[in-house]
Design a protein around this nucleic acid. Sequence first.
DNA 1: GTGTTTTTTGTAATGATTACAAAATTACTA
DNA 2: TAGTAATTTTGTAATCATTACAAAAAACAC
Lengths: 139, 139
Amino acid sequence: MEQQQISAYLLKNGIRPLQKRVKIMSYLVSKRNHPTVDMIYGDLIHEINGLSKTTIYNVLNLFVQSGVALALNIEGNEVRYDADTSTHGHFKCKICTGVIDFRIRQEELPRPTLEGFRIDEQHYYIKGVCSFCANKIEA
Amino acid sequence: MEQQQISAYLLKNGIRPLQKRVKIMSYLVSKRNHPTVDMIYGDLIHEINGLSKTTIYNVLNLFVQSGVALALNIEGNEVRYDADTSTHGHFKCKICTGVIDFRIRQEELPRPTLEGFRIDEQHYYIKGVCSFCANKIEA
DNA sequence: GTGTTTTTTGTAATGATTACAAAATTACTA
DNA sequence: TAGTAATTTTGTAATCATTACAAAAAACAC
């Protein structure tokens, strides 16, 4: 996605498309690696002059509140961010620590009987060992 | 569950049933309120003489490693603990911050096609507003 | 009981996140 | 286009949860 499209997308969701916001969203969308704040900072510090980690926190919090990003809480000591807000699950490998998406359709997720409850977000994640790391262990 | 049963349960899972461990597990099992470390500490400090918060961290980490408790990561800034290790989902209310269980059968959870992956844990949680808080908002 | 191992404790260290006020940027208007 | 007001970013300091670590206490073995 180009910067123009990202700007329009942010604007449509009530976010003024300022330079750093666009770059951060652009990073999330192109990388799709469910980064932590530190990963984003480490990568973008070279690209954006005078970027502060506080800004990344500010912008990501804004993104989550505005619904253009999800905060993933898989491990207690790290929050990861995902610009894909459609229904999907996450797998976290205990060995390489990477997080990957897996497709699930909305209808596949069990709909518990929660009478009178308002459901805002559904999260489904799996922990284990990915195939790449599993092969390395065997070998 | 009585202390005797808890002791036997811990022992069966390779955990020496020391006094404080039994009391902490007993608390988890009887309350079923998915407490944070602070909640446990606040409640048990009156009951157990000279209890340290570090001990609670130690014991809970041991419980999770031994498989007699789950660490729930629903919100990025808090870890909650659950002595119910069977398959079930969690609902967190944004208003009252409470976490409640909902029943789901293992077979209901979608099984994504993750060829060669080893699955250790499956987590499904929902965020929203519980019926009690929803009623209060309406009124 | 005495000595050894394990557990608990308490303080200090760490690491992620937020608060806050100053500086910089952006938007608005004449 | 310059000046002004509002918003955003920055950087440091504060906060909060969690872990490290060594000493004290408890549990265990003989």
